[in-house]
């Protein structure tokens, strides 16, 4: 399995602040990989180290098998780091032309990428007048200009309207599925990450807290919420897997066991008026994990 990004014991300290604390992480090539964490978790710092913008205080980071900051590896990736910033007097088209020249890209499809991110109409306007969402789109076009193998995105939909968010989400998934690009994205939008990502890593206080596929991580925290009567019979039938919350009973069971559990409840004389799955989302996972690290 090829590795897109690897961090081995990476630490970074800015003065008294420890941004990364012996972080070790391996992100395979292929698919969409999410990196989640609260503000200050170290997501942007990790990206900056990998891109050679800052040097780690400890450990080693590698990108496509090469040391972090290796220009040959960097030319095979595209990146959008934090808030996109551009020279305001350049038009969108000129910005991409300059960046294509810097990259040594001989035949950049500037118009094509501007079209794909929805900036054709604004191509010849100076960036000075761009909204935050437009700058995000231009940053994405700049990152894709060299047809990268790996795309690193730091909050790619920040500042965008709902329609724009849907477009970018679809583009990310399209890049991974159709073009074979490995997408590594950091986001606070947990719902977006759950919809787009195949695997995720949770960072907190500069450390890796949990890593795994989205489906595996969310399944652990899924609960079956049952509106039942009488409640005491239901609790007796479910045993220690269930608890009462308000007017409902919450059962910690997996989906495969659900049909059997429901049949057992009916057989025990319990009336079931509603049954639905809750909590199988990254938000629940995120809160439980960051709560664990606070306590631990």
């Amino acid at each position: 399995m090829s590795i897109a990004l690897e961090a081995v014991g990476v630490g970074k300290t800015f003065g008294a602040v420890k941004a990364l604390d012996a972080l070790s992480l391996r992100i395979p090539q292929g698919g969409v990989y999410g990196i989640l964490g609260p503000n200050g978790a170290g997501k942007s710092t990790l990206f900056r180290i990998v891109l050679g913008l800052v040097r780690p205080s400890a450990g080693e980071a590698r990108l496509l098998g090469a040391a972090a900051g290796d220009i040959k590896a960097l030319r095979r990736i595209g990146a959008v780091i934090e808030t996109p910033r551009f020279l305001p007097w350049l038009t969108a088209r000129d910005t991409l032309k300059v960046l294509a020249l810097e990259s040594g890209e001989k035949s950049p499809d500037i118009d094509g990428w501007l079209d794909r991110v929805g900036l054709t109409d604004a191509a010849d306007r100076t960036v000075h007048g761009f909204s935050v969402g437009m700058k995000q789109r231009l940053a994405l076009a700049a990152a894709l200009l060299t047809r990268p193998e790996v795309l690193i995105l730091d909050e790619p939909t920040s500042g965008m309207d709902p329609a724009g968010i849907l477009e970018i989400r679809a583009l990310i998934r399209d890049l991974a599925d159709r073009d074979g690009v490995t997408v590594i994205l950091a986001s606070h939008q947990l719902d977006e990450v759950q919809r787009v990502c195949d695997r995720v890593a949770f960072l907190d206080k500069g450390r890796l807290v949990r890593e795994g596929s989205v489906s595996d991580l969310t399944a652990v925290h899924e609960l079956l919420r049952l509106t039942v009567s009488p409640v005491d019979k239901a609790l007796a039938a479910l045993g220690d897997k269930a608890r009462v919350e308000g007017e409902a009973v919450l059962a910690a069971i997996d989906r495969a066991a659900a049909p059997g559990v429901i049949k057992a409840l009916v057989k025990a004389g319990v009336d079931i008026t509603e049954a639905r799955w809750i909590g199988g989302d990254l938000e629940t996972v995120f809160l439980s994990l960051t709560g664990e690290t606070d306590a631990g």
Binding site: L51, R75, R85, A142
Partner: peptide, 21 residues
Amino acid sequence: ADDYRWETWRLVTPRNTRANL
């Protein structure tokens, strides 16, 4: 100074070596 002022080093330093830039 323009690259510091407008924070555009993050755009260009991954595309070419710092010495070349």
